[in-house]
Design a protein around this nucleic acid. Structure first.
Lengths: 218, 218
DNA sequence: TTAAAACTACACAGGTCTGTGTAATGGCCG
DNA sequence: CGGCCATTACACAGACCTGTGTAGTTTTAA
């Protein structure tokens, strides 16, 4: 107890207490492992990447990796959790936020490492995925749907839930199609469809840059 | 030579020539293997099912299986080929064929063994899938898109290619969403969105059964 | 009946995987 | 300094995988 009290007041400049430093090092290492696992799992697939490979890429021993994650399944769950980060808030008008989410798709599909939706892939790969992994995937999808829903509410749409679901279907469909056909152009089809659905729901769309000639879709 | 000539004229009732019988037995066995592989690969995943398991389920030895398919990859390719069967022609009006494809989705999602799109799953599972498998998947998706396109042409839609792509996105999105969230109701959202897009393209929609009260989507 | 073809069981090579056991090493902290 | 903790290298168990080799058995066909 006395020793503990003494440890509470080391008072040495800006140094962290040793316990805190250890915590910080641990959390840094955890982040490094997660970053590597994310890269490997997403690009090559979960079943295709063994824990040995992850450890090697991080530059640590497998034993140490198992010191941070009790099993591969836990590592996979953490990987998916990391992919489920919430969208940052934006000051843009709601309609621009919605359309922007579609406009960003094309570059996403064109980006080097694009390999579809990590959650869909995980469910497809792990037919017997644990309940935790399923929950993470469902929560992510629902979170994205609610993000649309809230924006649509602000736009005064009559059925924000239904339209949000439909916009999500377009996103999911575009991701799946881009994965299979490797054609980033489907992003534009999704955007056009989203605009049509929004217009049909009475949302006033902003005049897009160079909209005069955009008749063709494909 | 004389023996061979005699073999050419056995003339016994309706019996097939022996060579034909052998061919037929071979093709039956091939079909049995394929049916079993289809069931196991689709429900449990390609990587999760070994060649031994397929052979055991068919009731043959692994050696025999390798007599019909030179490698697992060939078996997987045949499995996907079998999933890529063309849609049967229909006499229904084009608009009903299009809407029917969406109406059938919900029961498809509810069916016991539903586990998403076999092609998307295969690409997701086999990150290093061979060119053949990729081609099969792409051809399938494009075939489905052209099926819509032809119907839309008959409906006089201005941009049948673009709208066909959009309808496909809704289907793909619904499949992916149903796989993850296990909520067959997304099929209705997809159908509603399809109707909205068709209406927006000037297609006259038939009055659906009990359409008077169908205001709610979600 | 006889010969060839197909199929069987079984073992095996060579590789992968997850997870653990062990003993030695290095660094940090009191 | 002395103890503790993290980490390392390495081996290993036990399981799975794909594909092949072998030798014996059944089926089929002339």
């Amino acid at each position: 107890m006395a020793a503990r009290a003494a440890r509470m007041a080391p008072a040495l400049t800006t140094d962290l207490a040793s316990a805190d430093r250890r915590e910080s090092a641990k959390s840094e290492m955890r982040a490094r492992i997660l970053a590597t696992a994310d890269r490997l799992f997403y690009h090559q697939g979960i079943r295709a990447v063994g824990v040995d490979t992850v450890a090697d890429e991080v530059g640590i021993s497998k034993r140490t990796l198992y010191n941070y994650f009790p099993s591969k399944e836990a590592l996979v769950a953490a990987y998916l959790e990391g992919r489920a980060s919430a969208l940052p808030p934006s000051d843009l008008p709601p309609v621009e936020q919605v359309l922007g989410s579609f406009d960003r798709l094309e570059r996403y599909f064109e980006s080097q490492g694009f390999r579809g939706c990590p959650f869909v892939n995980a469910i497809a790969e792990l037919s017997d995925a644990g309940a935790e992994i399923n929950k993470i995937a469902i929560d992510f999808k629902e979170g994205r749907r609610l993000w649309y829903r809230d924006l649509l509410v602000r736009l005064g749409v009559a059925d924000p839930d239904g339209l949000a679901t439909q916009l999500r279907l377009l996103i999911e469909g575009a991701i799946a199609t881009a994965l299979v056909s490797r054609n980033a152009k489907v992003a534009r089809s999704a955007g056009e469809a989203a605009r049509a659905l929004l217009a049909g729901a009475g949302v006033q769309l902003p005049v897009s840059a160079g909209a005069a000639k955009s008749k063709r879709k494909r």
